[in-house]
Structure formats: structure tokens, C-alpha cells
Amino acid sequence: METVNQTTGKDVLLPDDTIEAFRAKAADTPHPRELIVDLLRAIQDHHGWVPDAGIELAAQTLGLSPLQLEEIATFYDKIYRQPVGRKVIHLCDSICCWTTGGEQVAELLRDKLGIGFGETTPDGVFTLLPTCCLGACGDAPAMMIGLTTYGRLTAEKIDTILREIRQQID
């Protein structure tokens, strides 16, 4: 994932051609607002999270005010308006996972990562967040890391998953 412009060394929110593509789409539709969620997700995919500058960039790309973007961005829980680690762990805390040991999994994750919910590991790899039902109720307890769902979690399974992700990143 390329987030730094190689020539300027600057952190980029979104590649220029993607911005241009959104700008063209916005010009092409009578209601550019429909692109807000797509654009915020694109910035987040590229940059990891949506900083203030990302809101401003999105607003400017779609011809809206930053406030108009912020009203949407802050509604959705899967748009991160604060810095997160390179991988966000969403642990389901809804009813099916609760019945199948979700609270113990939460405890395990907190222990293994050494962080609480809403926090990021010191190495910047993982952020731990609770989430409502992931639609993996048959595979409870479940979590989603990035956009991948992991079910039927056990201590061993969690160890393997976290280890593999750390290896991928390195």
C-alpha cells in the first residue's frame, strides 16, 4: 500500500489519478453526494484512516463543504476519523458472540495485544475496536481484521492469526 509520494516524500491521501477519477464522476452525476462514502473509503484504503485533510480533499473533489463531508464521515463507524494501526481488529460483541464466549475472546485479545478497546499497539500494527454483529453468527465468536472475517475463535486460532498478519506486514 503506497501512502507516501516517492518524489516528494509526502504522505499522500489518495493518488492523483484516483482523485481525478472521482472528480470526473462527480462532474458526471447530478448528485455528487452519492460518491461520498466511496471516496471516504478510498482515502481510508489508501491512507489507513481519514484525517482532517482527507475530509477537506474529499469535499474539494466533490464540490461540497468539509462540514458536509464530516456529517457523513462521523455517522459511519467504519470510517476512521482518528489514526488507527495498520490493521484494525473489529471484535463482535453482539448477542451470538456473547453467548459463545465473546467476552473471553475480548479478554484474550486485550492480553495478547496489551491494549484496551480503542487503542493501538505500540508498534502501530493493531487497533482494537468493538463492533456490532458482523453477520458471522454461525461462526461465533468472530472478529474482522481489515475486511477479512475470522470465526470460531480460540486462543490458538487468535495466536495464529495475529502472528500471520504480523509476518505479512514485515
Binding site: 463543504s65 468539509p66 462540514l67 458536509q68 463531508l69 464530516e70 456529517e71 462521523t74 455517522f75
Partner: peptide
């Protein structure tokens, strides 16, 4: 006006500006 609005959701609604 487009510089004042509502942000957040549920019982955490903030009525104000982007900055």
C-alpha cells in the same frame, strides 16, 4: 449555510462546525 451541521450519531450528536 454549509459550514454548520450535525456530526456523529446516536446519543453522541454534535451540532457545530467541521473546525
Amino acid at each position: 449555510g454549509d459550514d454548520f451541521g450535525v456530526m456523529g450519531s446516536r446519543n453522541r450528536l454534535f451540532f457545530g462546525r467541521f473546525q
